[in-house]
C-alpha cells in the first residue's frame, strides 16, 4: 500500500481504538505507520533516512523484518520511555507501526510477519487475485474508506465516544448513569426523560442530581426529587421509557466534611446561604417535634428516626431548602457537603 493509505489507516485506527482526536497523538501514529517501509529506499521514509534504508535493503528483502511481529515487539519494549510522556503516545506509536505493516498483508506480495521464525508471507485473503497491487487504482477506493473511517471516528469522539452515542441510542437509565459518572464533576447533567409515574406520564428535560445505583438516579422536578429507574424498577418514582443523557453547562464541584457538635443548624444554613449545596450524612437531634414533609410520591431527602431520648435525621442529597424545617434545632453529627458553583 502507498504511504498515504498507511497514514490514513493508522490515524483512523488509533483514533477509534484510543478514543482520541488529539492531533499530536494521531500525527505520531501516522508518522509511525511509515516507519516499516524504511526497508525500501524508494519509500517516503526510506528517502528521508536514505543511508539506513539502503543498508537494510542490501541485506533483507522488502517487507520482511520491519514488517513483522518481532519488530513490533522490539518497538513495544524500545518505546517504553514514551509511556512516561503519556500512555496515549505510547499506544499511538505501537498502533501506528502495527497498522503500517499489517495493511500490506492485503497486498499481493504480503509480508513476512513471522520473521525470523519463518520467511513465509502472511496474506489476507488467500486468493491472490483478490489482493491489492501496491500503487494500483484500487488504492484510491481504500483511501476514501480510511478517510471516511477517520471522519466518523472524529465525529464520534467529538460527541463523547462510541459507547456514549450507543448508550444514547438505547436511551436507558444506565447510559445516563455512565454519563453522570464521567462528567458530573465538571458539568451539569440533564436527562431528556419520558416515563411513567403513579400519577401518569412524565416527560421533559430534568437535571440529574445524584446517582443511587448503576441504573437509578435522582432528578429534580420543580422543588422535589424523583427517583428514576428502568421499566422494571418497582420502587422508583419514575419508570423510564426513554432516558437520554445530555451534558450541560460547566460547573465547579467541591466536597467538604462539616462536623456539628451541639450547634444550631441555623448557623450551618447561614454559612452556606446563597450557595447551591447537596448535603448527605446523619445528624442527632434533640427529642423535639420536627415537621418534615414526607411523601411516597417523591424522594425524601431527609428522614427522621425516633430514638428513646433523641432523634436521628438521615440526609441524602438534601438542599438548603430541605434543611429549613430543622432551622431552630441544634444538632450533632457529620455531614458531607457538595457545593456546586457555576
Amino acid at each position: 500500500m502507498t504511504a498515504k493509505n498507511h497514514f490514513l489507516f493508522s490515524i483512523a485506527a488509533s483514533s477509534l481504538t484510543l478514543g482520541t482526536i488529539d492531533p499530536f497523538v494521531l500525527l505520531l501514529a501516522g508518522a509511525m505507520s511509515l516507519l516499516p517501509d524504511i526497508d525500501s529506499s524508494k519509500s517516503v521514509i526510506g528517502k528521508i533516512f536514505f543511508p539506513l534504508s539502503r543498508l537494510i535493503e542490501r541485506y533483507f528483502p522488502h517487507r520482511t523484518f520491519t514488517h513483522s511481529f518481532f519488530m513490533t515487539a522490539i518497538l513495544a519494549i524500545g518505546a517504553i520511555p514514551l509511556a512516561f510522556e503519556g500512555t496515549e503516545f505510547y499506544f499511538a506509536a505501537l498502533i501506528g507501526f502495527f497498522c503500517g505493516w499489517f495493511l500490506d498483508v492485503f497486498t499481493k506480495a504480503g509480508v513476512s510477519a513471522f520473521y525470523p521464525m519463518s520467511m513465509a508471507r502472511l496474506v489476507i485473503p488467500a486468493n491472490p487475485a483478490l489482493r491489492l497491487s501496491t500503487g494500483s487504482k484500487n488504492e484510491w477506493f481504500f483511501s476514501v474508506i480510511f478517510l471516511a473511517l477517520f471522519v466518523i471516528s472524529f465525529q464520534l469522539h467529538s460527541s463523547g465516544g462510541v459507547m456514549q452515542i450507543f448508550t444514547s441510542l438505547l436511551a436507558q437509565p444506565t447510559g445516563v448513569a455512565e454519563l453522570y459518572l464521567a462528567h458530573s464533576n465538571k458539568n451539569r447533567i440533564y436527562v431528556n426523560l419520558s416515563g411513567q409515574t403513579s400519577a401518569g406520564q412524565i416527560s421533559g428535560k430534568y437535571e440529574v442530581v445524584s446517582l443511587l445505583s448503576n441504573n437509578t438516579f435522582l432528578i429534580r422536578k420543580e422543588n422535589s426529587l424523583l427517583l428514576v429507574g428502568d421499566s422494571q424498577c418497582l420502587h422508583c418514582h419514575v419508570r423510564s421509557d426513554s432516558a437520554k443523557g445530555e451534558i450541560g453547562e460547566a460547573i465547579y464541584v467541591s466536597t467538604q466534611e462539616v462536623r456539628l457538635n451541639d450547634q444550631p443548624i441555623s448557623k450551618f444554613i447561614e454559612h452556606f446561604s446563597g450557595r447551591e449545596i447537596l448535603v448527605s450524612g446523619e445528624l442527632t437531634l434533640p427529642n423535639e417535634e420536627v415537621n418534615i414533609p414526607n411523601s411516597q410520591m417523591q424522594f425524601n431527602a431527609i428522614t427522621i428516626a425516633a430514638n428513646l431520648d433523641s432523634k436521628t435525621a438521615r440526609l441524602q442529597n438534601a438542599s438548603l431548602e430541605d434543611l429549613r424545617p430543622l432551622f431552630r434545632l441544634t444538632a450533632s453529627g457529620s455531614l458531607i457537603v457538595k457545593t456546586i458553583t457555576q
Binding site: V105, K108, A109, G110, A113, F114, S118, M119, A120, R121, L122, V123, I124, P125, A126, P128, S133
Partner: peptide, 15 residues
C-alpha cells in the same frame, strides 16, 4: 512485466 502473478507457495493465510 508487472508482478501480477506471484507464483511462489510460501504463504500463510492470515484470514
Amino acid at each position: 512485466l508487472k508482478p501480477n502473478a506471484l507464483d511462489h507457495t510460501e504463504w500463510i493465510n492470515g484470514t
